[in-house]
C-alpha cells in the first residue's frame, strides 16, 4: 500500500463502512421481522408446539440431527420429517418411543429418552409446525 493511501483513510473506511453496514443490517432485520408472519405461520404456534420446542431443546436433539439444515449431521434432517413419515405425528411418536435402551449393535441409534406421551405428542406437533414453515422449497427432496 503506497503513501497516498494513509492510515487515517484506512481507519475512516473501517469506521464508516462498518457503521453503514450495521445500519443496513438493522434495517433489513426490521423488514424481515415485518414480513416473517407470512412465512412462518406463527398463528399455528400453539402452547403444545411451544412445549415441543422446549422438549426438543432440553434433550439436545440438535446434537445429532439437523433442523432446517442446522445442527449436527450425524442423524437425519428433521425439518421435513413430518412429511417424510407420511404426514403423521403418530409415526413420529412411535419411532421415538421404540428406540432400544441399549442401542443397536454396531450401528448408530437414537437414545431412549423416556418421554411421556404428552411430551412426545408436543414434540411431534413442533416438528409438524416446522415442516410447514416456508423454507423456499428446501430441502430439495423428501429425504432431507
Amino acid at each position: 500500500m503506497n503513501e497516498t493511501f494513509t492510515k487515517s483513510m484506512a481507519r475512516n473506511i473501517f469506521y464508516g463502512g462498518s457503521l453503514f453496514f450495521i445500519l443496513v443490517f438493522i434495517g433489513l432485520t426490521l423488514h424481515t421481522e415485518r414480513v416473517l408472519p407470512e412465512r412462518d405461520h406463527r398463528e399455528n404456534i400453539t402452547p403444545e408446539v411451544i412445549l415441543g420446542k422446549k422438549i426438543w431443546e432440553e434433550n439436545n436433539c440438535i446434537g445429532c440431527h439437523s433442523l432446517l439444515g442446522e445442527g449436527a449431521y450425524f442423524a437425519p434432517e428433521l425439518g421435513n420429517v413430518y412429511k417424510r413419515f407420511g404426514n403423521s405425528t403418530a409415526a413420529i411418536v412411535g419411532f421415538i418411543k421404540s428406540r432400544p435402551v441399549e442401542g443397536i449393535p454396531g450401528r448408530r441409534s437414537m437414545p431412549q429418552f423416556n418421554l411421556t406421551d404428552e411430551e412426545l405428542q408436543a414434540l411431534a406437533e413442533f416438528l409438524k409446525w416446522t415442516s410447514e414453515v416456508n423454507t423456499s422449497n428446501w430441502p430439495p427432496n423428501i429425504q432431507g
Partner: peptide, 17 residues
C-alpha cells in the same frame, strides 16, 4: 463408523457438545 461406540454412556450428542 462404529455407531454403538460408548453407547449409551456417551451418546454422540454429548460427545459433540
Amino acid at each position: 463408523v462404529v455407531g454403538d461406540f460408548l453407547f449409551p454412556e456417551i451418546p454422540f450428542n454429548v460427545a459433540r457438545m
